[in-house]
Design a protein around this nucleic acid. Structure first.
Lengths: 168, 168
DNA sequence: GAACTTTGCTTCGGCTGTTGAATTATGACT
DNA sequence: AGTCATAATTCAACAGCCGAAGCAAAGTTC
């Protein structure tokens, strides 16, 4: 069953692609079923996990790895939907504070993150040593891929994850 | 260092998100640097790994998890670029055969799949038991995520992966 | 074999995400 | 004051993606 080294790297890559594909499909399901697109939800999740529920467009752009213009476009839609508000920052009047609203937080809470739920459920059914091994492997892969030339800021605030926990 | 079970699932999810984010950023780099977009490259890769380098739009749509109309749009661009050709199928004249051209194959071969290269390199430096463990974990996660409600067809033919191997 | 249903593909209109370039406003520095 | 840098927006242009509508070919039913 254990093949040659070449087999192993091939099969690892195939497994990785399967993971990527599954998440892409989940994203699209989410978009069609919950009335919020993946990119918009990502913005809401980031805001939700921030102290005060607020962030600057620049900060959002850096964290998401997109251009500032993209953030402007997305926040336009979020604002029109009433999920965020925008105000000029008091301290630096060049900046804008993007603030999540209560209805915006509700969207984050209610968005069915099927991927995450499935992962949490399956993870919980694993034996202790399996969990530890899986975590080690995932962190290993993450370290392999998101390396120095990519901004390594903390990708995800834990807010949405803990939310999913509560509703296990 | 080893935290509570809740910590572990949280940290696993964060690692998973880091992986997803890294791959998304790689995709965008690829698009801007190689003159081919991720979706277009995916079509070319699928064709490249097929016997005869040919597939139907329907098959592409199923494999990629997108609508047929999307495949039409993408193949329009690929055809205009000279990377594929389209002919009516002889056996079933409703079908179209999408066939990759030689220049199309060259695009697949030369596309810098930085993600894959980095993975292969790092993987090769790992100890034997680590490789085995990583593979097992990735396949485990893949099985957790791309489950029954998602078409579980073989996601990726090995063609492009072996190509990356050769040029390790 | 005529009428229908199904299947495969394309066209069309519309939305989202994404970007670079140009613009405006503000802050920082000399 | 003058210059430069930074934050955000606007604009024009693509790419991806979809559902609905249309069309052609195959399959089915009577």
């Amino acid at each position: 069953m254990t093949g040659s080294p070449v087999d192993r790297v091939d099969e690892s890559l195939i497994a990785l692609r399967r993971i990527l594909r599954a998440t892409a499909l989940y994203d699209r399901d989410l978009a069609s079923s919950a009335g919020v697109t993946p990119a918009q939800l990502r913005v809401l999740q980031i805001l939700h996990g921030r102290p005060g529920g607020s962030f600057t467009p620049k900060g959002l752009a850096v964290q998401m790895g997109v251009a500032q213009a993209t953030v402007t476009a997305i926040t336009d839609k979020l604002e029109r939907a009433g999920w965020i508000t925008r105000h000029r920052s008091a301290t630096d009047r060049r900046q804008t504070d993007v603030v999540i609203t209560d209805t915006g937080r509700a969207v984050v809470r209610d968005a069915p993150d099927a991927l995450q739920q499935r992962f949490v459920r399956a993870f919980g059914q694993m034996a202790d040593w399996e969990q530890a091994q899986l975590l080690a492997s995932l962190e290993r892969v993450a370290a392999m891929l998101d390396a120095e030339d990519i901004d390594a800021s903390p990708v995800l605030t834990a807010g949405d994850i803990h939310t999913a926990q509560k509703r296990h």
